[in-house]
């Protein structure tokens, strides 16, 4: 299907916080408690509509273990949005946010929109991190914040779509140079701005949208 823009996202955060489950909930609308561990990187994609425009989200889901950090860095390149995820039932995943954020800021372009996500909000009885703490962290570091549950799907759509809205606004404001693919944004084949047509390159992605990464 044709799209006006393609945004590249990256999902980061400690191992076991639910990154792959969030992605699956968003792309396939299902929760799969049983799945293989992510080694390296996985991909997902989905079409959304903002302001009447079709936008394709291409989402890179990364391995969370510390040991992978050196290669995760190469996945940041050209990401327009990042979901930084922690697990509200495990305090240490919240404590590591600063390191993740430093990494993200250092290896991505400065305009990348970062959404902070406290996942597993369905496990209220096991909560170790208060919602207010997440909000405070987000405020302090200029991030958007949301608590989600990949299991019940609560706020999952919103997390991905609100990030896209922020990116879209930045495009409207002229903050993002959409002709530079390093910003994680590609203009789709249906877009008619003359300048972007040459650099679109995504024409071949026309067909498959479900399950595929492009």
């Amino acid at each position: 299907m044709a799209y006006a823009y393609l945004f590249k996202y990256i999902i980061i955060g400690d191992t076991g916080v639910g990154k792959s489950c969030l992605l699956l909930q968003f792309t396939d609308k299902r929760f799969q408690p049983v799945h293989d561990l992510t080694i390296g990187v996985e991909f997902g994609a989905r079409m959304i509509t903002i302001d009447g425009k079709q936008i394709k989200l291409q989402i890179w889901d990364t391995a969370g273990q510390e040991a992978f950090r050196s290669i995760t860095r190469s996945y940041y390149r050209g990401a327009a949005g990042a979901l930084l995820v922690y697990d509200i039932t495990r305090r240490e995943t919240f404590n590591h946010l600063t390191t993740w954020l430093e990494d993200a800021r250092q290896h991505s372009n400065s305009n990348m929109v970062i959404m902070l996500i406290g996942n597993k909000s369905d496990l209220e009885s096991r909560r170790e991190v208060k919602k207010e703490e997440g909000e405070a962290f987000a405020r302090e570091h200029g991030l958007v914040f949301m608590e989600t549950s990949a299991k019940t799907a609560a706020n999952v759509e919103e997390a991905f779509i609100n990030t896209a809205k922020e990116i879209y606004e930045k495009i409207q404001e002229g903050v993002f140079d959409i002709n530079n693919e390093a910003n994680g944004i590609k203009i789709g084949p249906q877009h008619s701005t003359g300048a972007g047509a040459g650099g679109a390159g995504g024409a071949g992605a026309g067909g498959a949208s479900s399950g595929g990464c492009c």
Binding site: F43, Q58, G201, G202, A203, G204, A205, G212, C213, C214
Partner: peptide, 15 residues
């Protein structure tokens, strides 16, 4: 190769 005309399309083929 012609169809897989980008980074992601190529990764998809390899996956």
């Amino acid at each position: 190769r012609k169809r897989a005309c980008g980074l992601c399309e190529t990764l998809e083929v390899l996956r």
